[in-house]
Amino acid sequence: MKRKALVLAGVGAVALAVPSVMTFAAEDWGQYQVGDKRSGYTFAKAETRAIQDDDFENPGMLWVEHGEELWETVDGEAQKSCKSCHADASDTMKNVGSTYPVFAKDIGKLENVENRINRCRTDNMKAKPWKYDSRNMLGMVSYVKRQSFGQPMNVKVDGDAAPWFEKGKEFYNQRRGQLDMACKHCHVDNAGNMIRANTLSQGQGNGFPTYRLKWQKPGSLHRRFRGCNKQVRATPYKTGSDEYLALELYVMYRGQGLPVETPAVRN
Protein backbone atom coordinates (compact mmCIF):
# COMPACT_ATOMS: atom_id res chain seq x y z
CA MET A 1 0.00 0.00 0.00
CA LYS A 2 2.74 2.34 0.96
CA ARG A 3 4.68 1.52 -2.21
CA LYS A 4 1.64 2.13 -4.41
CA ALA A 5 1.15 5.55 -2.88
CA LEU A 6 4.74 6.46 -3.65
CA VAL A 7 4.35 5.43 -7.26
CA LEU A 8 1.22 7.51 -7.56
CA ALA A 9 2.98 10.47 -6.02
CA GLY A 10 5.71 10.03 -8.61
CA VAL A 11 3.21 10.05 -11.45
CA GLY A 12 1.63 13.14 -9.96
CA ALA A 13 4.97 14.94 -9.89
CA VAL A 14 5.57 14.15 -13.56
CA ALA A 15 2.08 15.31 -14.49
CA LEU A 16 2.66 18.56 -12.63
CA ALA A 17 6.08 19.07 -14.15
CA VAL A 18 4.86 18.86 -17.75
CA PRO A 19 2.54 21.87 -17.80
CA SER A 20 5.11 24.04 -16.02
CA VAL A 21 7.71 23.20 -18.67
CA MET A 22 5.24 24.10 -21.40
CA THR A 23 4.43 27.43 -19.78
CA PHE A 24 8.13 28.23 -19.72
CA ALA A 25 8.52 27.41 -23.43
CA ALA A 26 5.62 29.63 -24.50
CA GLU A 27 7.34 32.88 -23.65
CA ASP A 28 5.47 36.00 -24.73
CA TRP A 29 7.62 37.80 -27.27
CA GLY A 30 5.07 40.47 -28.06
CA GLN A 31 5.51 42.05 -31.48
CA TYR A 32 8.67 39.98 -32.08
CA GLN A 33 6.60 36.88 -32.67
CA VAL A 34 3.76 36.55 -35.17
CA GLY A 35 2.26 33.07 -35.21
CA ASP A 36 5.22 30.74 -35.56
CA LYS A 37 7.41 33.46 -37.08
CA ARG A 38 10.01 34.69 -34.63
CA SER A 39 12.39 37.58 -35.04
CA GLY A 40 16.07 36.90 -34.43
CA TYR A 41 15.48 39.12 -31.40
CA THR A 42 13.79 36.19 -29.66
CA PHE A 43 16.84 33.98 -30.16
CA ALA A 44 19.33 36.62 -28.99
CA LYS A 45 20.79 36.80 -25.49
CA ALA A 46 19.18 39.19 -23.00
CA GLU A 47 22.28 41.41 -22.99
CA THR A 48 22.15 41.71 -26.79
CA ARG A 49 18.45 42.52 -26.74
CA ALA A 50 19.06 45.21 -24.13
CA ILE A 51 21.58 46.92 -26.44
CA GLN A 52 19.06 46.94 -29.29
CA ASP A 53 16.25 48.22 -27.05
CA ASP A 54 18.12 51.33 -25.95
CA ASP A 55 18.54 53.85 -28.80
CA PHE A 56 21.46 55.45 -26.98
CA GLU A 57 23.23 52.12 -26.49
CA ASN A 58 22.42 50.69 -29.90
CA PRO A 59 25.56 51.34 -31.99
CA GLY A 60 23.55 50.89 -35.20
CA MET A 61 21.91 54.25 -34.43
CA LEU A 62 25.21 55.96 -35.28
CA TRP A 63 24.73 54.80 -38.86
CA VAL A 64 21.11 55.98 -38.83
CA GLU A 65 22.38 59.40 -37.77
CA HIS A 66 25.02 59.34 -40.47
CA GLY A 67 22.29 58.58 -43.01
CA GLU A 68 20.22 61.45 -41.69
CA GLU A 69 23.11 63.82 -42.39
CA LEU A 70 23.65 62.37 -45.86
CA TRP A 71 19.96 62.81 -46.62
CA GLU A 72 20.46 66.54 -46.88
CA THR A 73 23.99 66.50 -48.26
CA VAL A 74 24.24 67.72 -51.86
CA ASP A 75 26.29 65.36 -54.04
CA GLY A 76 26.90 64.81 -57.78
CA GLU A 77 26.78 66.97 -60.91
CA ALA A 78 23.06 67.60 -60.60
CA GLN A 79 23.73 69.38 -57.29
CA LYS A 80 20.97 67.53 -55.47
CA SER A 81 20.54 65.85 -52.14
CA CYS A 82 17.95 63.17 -51.35
CA LYS A 83 15.96 65.89 -49.66
CA SER A 84 15.80 67.98 -52.87
CA CYS A 85 13.29 65.51 -54.29
CA HIS A 86 12.09 63.42 -51.36
CA ALA A 87 11.66 66.20 -48.76
CA ASP A 88 10.95 64.80 -45.31
CA ALA A 89 12.03 61.15 -45.09
CA SER A 90 9.70 60.42 -42.19
CA ASP A 91 6.89 61.11 -44.62
CA THR A 92 8.18 59.98 -48.03
CA MET A 93 10.12 56.89 -46.90
CA LYS A 94 7.73 55.61 -44.27
CA ASN A 95 6.65 52.42 -46.08
CA VAL A 96 9.94 51.57 -47.76
CA GLY A 97 11.48 49.36 -45.07
CA SER A 98 8.41 47.16 -44.78
CA THR A 99 7.72 46.68 -48.50
CA TYR A 100 11.12 46.32 -50.23
CA PRO A 101 12.40 44.61 -52.29
CA VAL A 102 9.85 45.55 -54.97
CA PHE A 103 9.55 44.88 -58.67
CA ALA A 104 10.54 48.14 -60.41
CA LYS A 105 8.66 48.39 -63.70
CA ASP A 106 10.98 51.03 -65.17
CA ILE A 107 14.00 48.72 -65.02
CA GLY A 108 12.05 45.50 -65.36
CA LYS A 109 13.53 43.78 -62.34
CA LEU A 110 13.41 43.37 -58.61
CA GLU A 111 15.09 46.14 -56.66
CA ASN A 112 16.04 46.47 -53.01
CA VAL A 113 16.74 49.66 -51.06
CA GLU A 114 20.51 49.55 -51.71
CA ASN A 115 20.10 49.22 -55.47
CA ARG A 116 17.31 51.83 -55.54
CA ILE A 117 19.55 54.33 -53.73
CA ASN A 118 22.36 53.79 -56.21
CA ARG A 119 19.98 54.14 -59.17
CA CYS A 120 18.83 57.45 -57.72
CA ARG A 121 22.43 58.55 -57.24
CA THR A 122 23.62 57.71 -60.74
CA ASP A 123 20.47 58.65 -62.72
CA ASN A 124 19.07 61.61 -60.78
CA MET A 125 21.95 63.05 -58.77
CA LYS A 126 24.62 62.25 -61.37
CA ALA A 127 26.71 61.07 -58.46
CA LYS A 128 28.94 58.02 -58.04
CA PRO A 129 27.22 54.88 -56.76
CA TRP A 130 28.13 53.79 -53.27
CA LYS A 131 29.76 50.43 -52.55
CA TYR A 132 27.26 47.96 -51.14
CA ASP A 133 28.48 47.72 -47.55
CA SER A 134 30.21 51.10 -47.38
CA ARG A 135 29.63 53.45 -44.45
CA ASN A 136 27.54 55.76 -46.62
CA MET A 137 25.36 53.01 -48.07
CA LEU A 138 24.80 51.36 -44.69
CA GLY A 139 24.02 54.76 -43.20
CA MET A 140 21.50 55.69 -45.86
CA VAL A 141 19.79 52.26 -45.92
CA SER A 142 19.62 52.27 -42.12
CA TYR A 143 18.11 55.77 -42.12
CA VAL A 144 15.58 54.96 -44.84
CA LYS A 145 14.49 51.67 -43.27
CA ARG A 146 14.33 53.27 -39.84
CA GLN A 147 11.44 55.35 -41.14
CA SER A 148 9.39 52.13 -41.15
CA PHE A 149 10.48 51.15 -37.65
CA GLY A 150 7.86 48.93 -36.00
CA GLN A 151 5.79 48.48 -39.15
CA PRO A 152 4.93 44.88 -40.06
CA MET A 153 6.83 43.43 -43.01
CA ASN A 154 4.55 43.36 -46.02
CA VAL A 155 6.33 42.47 -49.25
CA LYS A 156 4.50 41.79 -52.48
CA VAL A 157 5.24 38.39 -53.97
CA ASP A 158 2.60 38.12 -56.71
CA GLY A 159 2.35 39.73 -60.14
CA ASP A 160 5.71 40.76 -61.60
CA ALA A 161 7.45 39.78 -58.36
CA ALA A 162 6.22 36.17 -58.56
CA PRO A 163 9.07 34.76 -60.69
CA TRP A 164 11.61 36.40 -58.34
CA PHE A 165 9.82 34.96 -55.35
CA GLU A 166 9.91 31.49 -56.89
CA LYS A 167 13.63 31.84 -57.62
CA GLY A 168 14.27 32.94 -54.05
CA LYS A 169 12.33 30.02 -52.65
CA GLU A 170 14.26 27.64 -54.86
CA PHE A 171 17.55 29.13 -53.66
CA TYR A 172 16.43 28.76 -50.05
CA ASN A 173 15.79 25.05 -50.45
CA GLN A 174 18.75 24.21 -52.69
CA ARG A 175 21.61 22.35 -51.05
CA ARG A 176 24.97 23.98 -51.74
CA GLY A 177 28.65 23.76 -50.94
CA GLN A 178 30.81 20.90 -49.76
CA LEU A 179 28.72 20.69 -46.58
CA ASP A 180 25.71 20.33 -48.87
CA MET A 181 23.19 22.30 -46.83
CA ALA A 182 20.30 24.52 -47.86
CA CYS A 183 19.19 27.61 -45.91
CA LYS A 184 16.21 25.61 -44.70
CA HIS A 185 18.25 22.91 -43.01
CA CYS A 186 19.38 25.40 -40.35
CA HIS A 187 16.68 28.06 -40.37
CA VAL A 188 13.55 25.93 -40.77
CA ASP A 189 14.44 22.43 -39.60
CA ASN A 190 16.75 23.49 -36.74
CA ALA A 191 15.67 26.97 -35.65
CA GLY A 192 16.02 27.16 -31.87
CA ASN A 193 18.72 24.46 -31.70
CA MET A 194 22.25 25.21 -30.64
CA ILE A 195 24.92 24.83 -33.31
CA ARG A 196 28.18 25.14 -31.41
CA ALA A 197 27.87 28.25 -29.22
CA ASN A 198 25.02 29.83 -31.20
CA THR A 199 21.29 29.34 -31.25
CA LEU A 200 20.10 28.93 -34.83
CA SER A 201 17.44 31.52 -35.62
CA GLN A 202 14.79 31.50 -38.33
CA GLY A 203 17.09 33.70 -40.39
CA GLN A 204 14.64 36.60 -40.58
CA GLY A 205 15.58 39.76 -42.47
CA ASN A 206 13.45 42.38 -40.72
CA GLY A 207 16.30 43.91 -38.69
CA PHE A 208 18.79 44.69 -41.47
CA PRO A 209 21.14 46.43 -41.80
CA THR A 210 21.92 44.65 -38.55
CA TYR A 211 24.67 45.68 -36.17
CA ARG A 212 26.64 42.49 -35.52
CA LEU A 213 28.80 42.43 -32.43
CA LYS A 214 31.07 40.03 -34.32
CA TRP A 215 31.52 42.57 -37.15
CA GLN A 216 31.68 45.60 -34.85
CA LYS A 217 29.54 47.41 -37.44
CA PRO A 218 26.27 47.01 -39.29
CA GLY A 219 26.10 44.81 -42.36
CA SER A 220 23.65 44.19 -45.16
CA LEU A 221 21.45 41.13 -45.48
CA HIS A 222 23.43 40.21 -48.60
CA ARG A 223 26.66 40.29 -46.61
CA ARG A 224 25.02 37.87 -44.19
CA PHE A 225 23.98 35.63 -47.11
CA ARG A 226 27.60 35.57 -48.26
CA GLY A 227 28.76 34.57 -44.78
CA CYS A 228 26.21 31.75 -44.57
CA ASN A 229 27.11 30.48 -48.05
CA LYS A 230 30.80 30.43 -47.22
CA GLN A 231 30.14 28.61 -43.96
CA VAL A 232 28.70 25.68 -45.87
CA ARG A 233 31.73 25.96 -48.18
CA ALA A 234 29.71 27.24 -51.13
CA THR A 235 30.75 29.97 -53.55
CA PRO A 236 28.77 33.07 -52.58
CA TYR A 237 27.13 35.46 -55.03
CA LYS A 238 27.88 39.17 -55.19
CA THR A 239 26.06 41.57 -52.91
CA GLY A 240 23.25 43.17 -54.90
CA SER A 241 23.15 40.26 -57.39
CA ASP A 242 19.89 38.97 -58.88
CA GLU A 243 20.29 35.72 -56.97
CA TYR A 244 20.49 37.47 -53.61
CA LEU A 245 17.71 39.91 -54.55
CA ALA A 246 15.42 36.95 -55.17
CA LEU A 247 16.55 35.36 -51.91
CA GLU A 248 15.99 38.65 -50.07
CA LEU A 249 12.39 38.74 -51.29
CA TYR A 250 11.78 35.18 -50.13
CA VAL A 251 13.42 35.79 -46.76
CA MET A 252 11.39 38.97 -46.21
CA TYR A 253 8.24 37.06 -47.14
CA ARG A 254 9.11 34.46 -44.50
CA GLY A 255 9.06 37.28 -41.98
CA GLN A 256 5.80 38.80 -43.22
CA GLY A 257 4.13 40.49 -40.24
CA LEU A 258 7.28 40.84 -38.13
CA PRO A 259 8.15 44.46 -37.33
CA VAL A 260 10.94 46.38 -39.07
CA GLU A 261 13.67 46.48 -36.40
CA THR A 262 16.40 48.40 -38.20
CA PRO A 263 18.98 48.63 -36.78
CA ALA A 264 18.76 45.26 -35.01
CA VAL A 265 21.65 44.10 -32.82
CA ARG A 266 22.85 40.49 -32.98
CA ASN A 267 25.92 38.57 -31.89
Binding site: R176, G177, Q178, L179, D180
Partner: peptide, 14 residues
Amino acid sequence: GFHRVLKNFKGKSV
Protein backbone atom coordinates in the same frame (compact mmCIF):
# COMPACT_ATOMS: atom_id res chain seq x y z
CA GLY B 1 28.13 16.14 -57.12
CA PHE B 2 27.74 19.31 -55.02
CA HIS B 3 26.34 22.70 -56.02
CA ARG B 4 28.76 25.68 -56.21
CA VAL B 5 31.53 24.35 -53.98
CA LEU B 6 34.11 26.97 -52.89
CA LYS B 7 37.31 26.68 -54.90
CA ASN B 8 39.47 25.41 -52.04
CA PHE B 9 37.15 22.49 -51.41
CA LYS B 10 36.46 21.49 -55.02
CA GLY B 11 36.92 17.79 -55.74
CA LYS B 12 37.66 17.04 -52.11
CA SER B 13 35.77 15.18 -49.44
CA VAL B 14 35.55 16.66 -45.92
